[in-house]
């Protein structure tokens, strides 16, 4: 791999642009391709080959493909999935590093400056806007999970309303069953549809009987991974 292709691949990942690295397994020549069909590298791909590569990027499908006499390895590099945590609370201090370990890009949102400090959240992107404004700016997509952990409707409700209006693949909120029922009533009153309400994971997390913040963080992360991957061995 030429250094400039290596650098371009890293830049694409940093910018959250999905790309594929196409390697001609015969010659070793490589081409980096993005979703708009832009190419850079050792060689331009044949016009008829490009659509296959774009399909592979869209479907996140890496593998060897044959094109005429050649064998090519298409390695799709999707951007990292994101986790937006609303509430810079104790639980978030456990969830942020655990989620990073699982490969998620983590952003913590909390307008309360006493909570959202770099001391409490080293190496974490912190946003101190109100949750609805922060989510409008961060624009959750189908690779984004949003969890609201403040326990305070003043923060959690607008976060949920904003998250449900996006394609976020996971929307979760902390709170017991009684709180959840009251929350659903409030959101219903604000005109959130039943279909949207059904997307909410609340109580958030997989039920593993978690008690401590670290345990709850792991249960939330497990539930997010389940939403992302789907169960492998169904009971």
């Amino acid at each position: 791999m030429k250094a400039r292709i290596f650098d371009a691949l890293r830049a694409a990942l940093a910018d959250r642009r999905p790309v594929a690295l196409v390697t001609d397994l015969g010659s070793g020549l490589q081409t980096l391709v993005d979703l708009d069909g832009r190419q850079m590298g050792d060689v331009a791909l044949e016009d008829e080959f490009l659509p296959q590569v774009l399909d592979a990027i869209r479907e996140n499908r890496s593998g060897i493909v044959e094109f005429y006499e050649g064998r090519f390895f298409i390695n799709v590099h999707p951007p990292a999935n994101r986790l937006l945590i609303v509430g810079a609370v104790h639980l978030a201090q456990a969830l942020a590093p655990a989620a990073r370990l699982a490969g998620l890009d983590v952003t913590v949102i909390d307008p309360r400056a006493a909570f959202a400090t770099p001391e409490r959240f080293p190496d974490t992107v912190l946003v101190t806007d109100w949750p609805d404004e922060a989510l409008a700016a961060l624009r959750p997509d189908a690779r984004t999970a949003v969890v609201a952990l403040t326990h305070d409707p003043k923060f959690d409700d607008p976060a949920l309303t904003a998250a449900l209006s996006t394609d976020a693949f996971y929307v979760g909120v902390l709170g017991g069953r009684k709180n959840q029922a009251a929350r659903l009533e409030r959101l219903r009153g604000q005109g959130v549809s039943e279909a949207q309400l059904a997307r909410i994971h609340g109580p958030v997390g997989l039920d593993i009987g978690a008690v401590t913040p670290a345990e709850i963080a792991i249960s939330i992360l497990a539930d997010i991974i389940l939403a992302l991957r789907g169960a492998k061995w169904k009971a």
Binding site: F6, R10, A14, F73, H77, L101
Partner: peptide, 27 residues
């Protein structure tokens, strides 16, 4: 580095290169 994905692996490769070491990549 508390991540284990391709981005983190390439970042490690870059830091070896910055330190003057040659690096191979296995796919």
């Amino acid at each position: 580095m508390i991540r284990d994905d391709n981005e983190a692996i390439l970042a490690q490769a870059a830091s070896w290169r910055d330190a003057g070491q040659s690096v191979a990549l296995a796919h």
